[in-house]
Design a protein around this nucleic acid. Structure first.
Length: 268
DNA sequence: TTGATTTGACCAAA
DNA sequence: TTTGGTCAAATCAA
């Protein structure tokens, strides 16, 4: 950001642009009248996901707005599919940070399914088991701990966020279990660590860790989180930015309804 | 030069 | 009238 940017002239009105003409960004209308897109609709198909990495979900997103929401401590970020124009994809998402933990938790509200059929984007983190049926195993992908100079071209991550991943010295693995949508009681006490044996085949790092960390919970007690300090393991020997690890077993077979996600990121 | 991001304005739902 | 979702000019960055 420049220190003293000149006052920005904003449009006052669009006198020659009749309502209902043209669509957004000069597009032909995607579905209904373009002005409808500015309306708040309660019948839109939406679903909510909680994640530590809202910017890495396998799709290309373009940020189109940011808004301070009343009574919310953090601004809400608005994204839509980068292929909105090219492929008339209506998918969009809202990202709202919900706490200031390290790393912070985000609530992501998705609207409309992707119709762009774009290839999945390699990402530093991918979560599995969102509100919709998952394909089977849990998939992880992540960035390497150092020398990750390959720029992450596709997923548009806010620059500060991306720099945090690169500048933080030690990697960690975070796994969350989200009980907020379905289960009325925890299936296991919070002192019991998640099973690690089924991770071993494709994730030798965890196998070699004899002690599982103690989980912690969020304010609402809906999410159990385990954080592994992976600084003692040489990630770069095994993984590169964009790699995916498939958990082929059923490491979450004991979990109740809800979300399971895991992230490999960089911490302190 | 081009495409993405920022951010105040606009506007409709609540 | 307030609030939140979107637009779009200005700006940034590759």
């Amino acid at each position: 950001m420049n220190m003293a940017s000149p006052p920005r002239l904003k449009r006052k009105q669009q006198p020659s642009q009749p309502c209902g003409q043209g669509g957004v960004f000069g597009l032909s209308p995607l579905e209904s009248a373009p002005r409808d897109s500015r309306k708040r609709r309660k019948d839109k198909h939406t679903w909510i996901k909680h994640t530590l990495t809202p910017y890495f979900d396998g799709h290309l997103w373009r940020k189109y707005g940011q808004k301070v929401i009343k009574d919310a401590p953090y601004p809400r970020l608005y994204f839509r599919c980068s292929y909105r124009e090219d492929r008339r994809c209506l998918a969009s998402k809202l990202v709202q940070q919900v706490n200031h933990d390290d790393p912070p938790l985000y609530e992501v509200t998705y609207t409309y399914e992707h119709t762009c059929n774009a290839a999945p984007v390699p990402a530093p983190d991918v979560e599995a088991g969102d509100d919709r049926p998952a394909s089977g195993g849990l998939v992880l992908s992540f960035g390497s701990s150092s020398g990750a100079d390959r720029h992450h071209h596709d997923t548009r991550v806010p620059k500060q966020e991306w720099q945090q991943y690169h500048q933080s010295p030690s990697p960690f693995l975070t796994m969350n279990l989200d009980y907020s949508n379905g289960s009325h009681q925890h299936a296991f006490p919070s002192s019991v660590p998640p099973p690690t044996t089924s991770w071993s085949q494709s994730f030798p790092i965890v196998e070699s860790s004899s002690a599982s960390p103690t989980p912690w919970t969020d304010d609402d007690d809906d999410i159990l989180t385990w954080d592994w300090d992976l600084s003692a393991y040489d990630l770069d020997d095994h993984f590169q930015l964009g790699d995916h690890v498939q958990f082929s077993g059923s490491p979450f077979s004991w979990k109740p309804d809800g979300n399971a996600l895991a992230n490999l990121g960089m911490g302190n």
